[in-house]
Design a binder for these strands. Structure first.
Length: 450
DNA sequence: TCTGGGGTCCTAGGACCC
DNA sequence: TCTGGGGTCCTAGGACCC
């Protein structure tokens, strides 16, 4: 290891692969509905707000990523586009299947996102051939098509992956260590991993328009204009690894649960319900990584597009003792909400963020003594883990918190109206075009007729 | 009271990613 | 009617301390 300007560099020959699921959410829908094959298909964000996944056919129609769904209605109708609400339960389950498969095929891997993973292929005689094998195996075992980019650094695998995905001629696998310069010259600088819109504009104005140009830019100049992160990107383009594979099991440093509401919300009671539901979900997430949080932030905001008077505010509460205990987190979230809530506004989004996260086992029991008897504390932990277990087995929302005003069932919006003392539940999501929970709900597993 | 260097911690905001 | 929901890292500046 050698150090220079904040960059850690590893010696030795490295070979990485980037596995990227093609149009992942659309591919998940297709696995269970083969009639979608060859058709233009899109998947919408929560509340059916905008387009977040497109099949190749939909991309060819000019449908943009992030396009508001209401602006695409005409186009969808004219071309018979199949439109789906997002079904994260299904996608998360499919993702796990893909990642489990990859885990069996590579000695080391980093799950980078719901649809991407980096693998280490150091030591394989023929990484290209092996990547084709991986590609076929994932397709056969899960039904999901993938592309693979191969290179000496993660940044180079991303560049290779871009060609593997965009240019069919490669057959889904591209190794950038052969003919790298030619590919880097064909890659627009804005497509480089780590170069976003701002830097792309700056680089183009400075006369650097391709990945190759960026690779050959002087260190000092890059350092000054793009910081050490930019310098790391440039070194990686040159084949020097600066970002190793992230260890499996690394815990998140922040956990956010936030949603746009199904309809605009004015009253405090409804906001309290929404915030309780989000705090409860965030608490589940943090318990699943066996951590506790030392601070909780609640935020609310009005619609930024509809011309309403705008207001958005957040409140952070430091927890006297780091915790993952749902009722305590709901209590603090409510206290924060009371501080920032202003009547007279129509809110369209709220959220809860847990921060200053530490592993539960590192929390010193001594800290707890003045507040909770140690035995009580372990009882609380057992209670939480029983609830999580039941919800995992029988579906999220089987057991929920009264403060959240009714189960956050996987399908969300149904069956909670009418009870006394209950708000109108306008904050719940709209998902009118939802596909069935094929893999995670006993009632919706497809039946095979023999 | 003023002057100065240097260190740490925290926070807000910017840039990026999917 | 109608515009997602997560994350990471870095930097600059202020407060505070010696």
């Amino acid at each position: 290891m050698q150090r220079n300007k904040g960059i850690t560099q590893k010696e030795g020959q490295s070979v990485f692969a980037l596995v990227d699921c093609n149009n992942f959410y659309v591919s998940c829908e297709r696995v269970f509905n083969p009639a979608l094959e060859g058709k233009p298909v899109v998947v919408l964000s929560n509340n059916d707000g905008c387009v977040i996944a497109r099949s190749n056919e939909a991309k060819s129609l000019g449908i943009q990523m992030g396009a508001p769904a209401f602006k695409c209605k005409g186009l969808f109708a004219r071309h018979g586009v199949r439109v789906h609400s997002s079904n994260y339960t299904l996608y998360a389950d499919m993702s796990k299947r893909v990642m489990d498969t990859l885990g069996r095929l590579a000695p080391e891997m980093e799950v980078y996102s719901i649809d991407e993973a980096f693998l280490s292929l150091a030591g394989f005689d023929d990484p290209v051939e092996y990547s084709r094998f991986i590609r076929n195996t994932v397709k056969r075992w899960t039904g999901v098509p993938i592309s693979v980019g191969i290179g000496r650094t993660k940044t180079l695998t991303k560049a290779a992956g871009w060609f593997a995905k965009k240019e069919q001629a490669y057959g889904g696998v591209v190794d950038i260590s052969a003919g790298g310069d030619e590919l880097l010259e064909r890659l627009e600088v804005g497509e480089v991993w780590g170069v976003g819109r701002r830097y792309a504009k700056m680089l183009i104005e400075a006369g650097i328009s391709t990945a190759l140009g960026l690779r050959d830019a002087p260190d000092e100049w890059v350092r000054k204009r793009m910081g050490v992160a930019g310098l790391r990107t440039v070194w990686e383009l040159r084949g020097t690894p600066c970002t190793p594979l992230k260890q499996a099991g690394a815990h998140k440093k922040r956990i956010v649960t936030s949603r746009m509401f199904g309809t605009l919300v004015e009253g405090l009671p409804e906001l309290r319900e929404a915030v309780a539901a989000y705090a409860s979900r965030a608490a589940e997430k943090i318990r699943s990584q066996e951590s506790v949080a030392s601070s909780i932030t609640v935020f609310i905001t009005t619609n930024r597009y509809n011309g309403d008077p705008r207001y958005s505010e957040s409140a952070t509460t430091r927890l006297p003792v780091p915790t993952s205990y749902t009722p305590e987190l709901i209590r603090c979230a409510h206290a924060g909400l009371e501080k920032i809530y202003k009547p007279g506004y129509r809110y369209n989004k709220a959220g809860v963020m847990l921060a200053d996260i530490v592993p539960a086992r590192e929390m010193q029991l001594g800290l707890l003594a003045p507040l909770v008897h140690a035995r009580d504390y372990s009882q609380l932990q057992r209670l939480m883990s029983s609830i999580d277990h039941i919800n995992a087995q029988w579906g999220s929302g089987t057991i929920w918190y009264a403060a959240a005003g009714g189960g956050e069932g996987a399908r969300g919006a149904e069956g909670t109206e009418g009870a006394e003392n209950r708000s109108r539940q306008g904050w719940r999501m709209r998902r009118s075009l939802l596909s069935p929970m094929f893999t995670t709900d006993w009632d919706e597993i497809p039946a095979v007729k023999a």
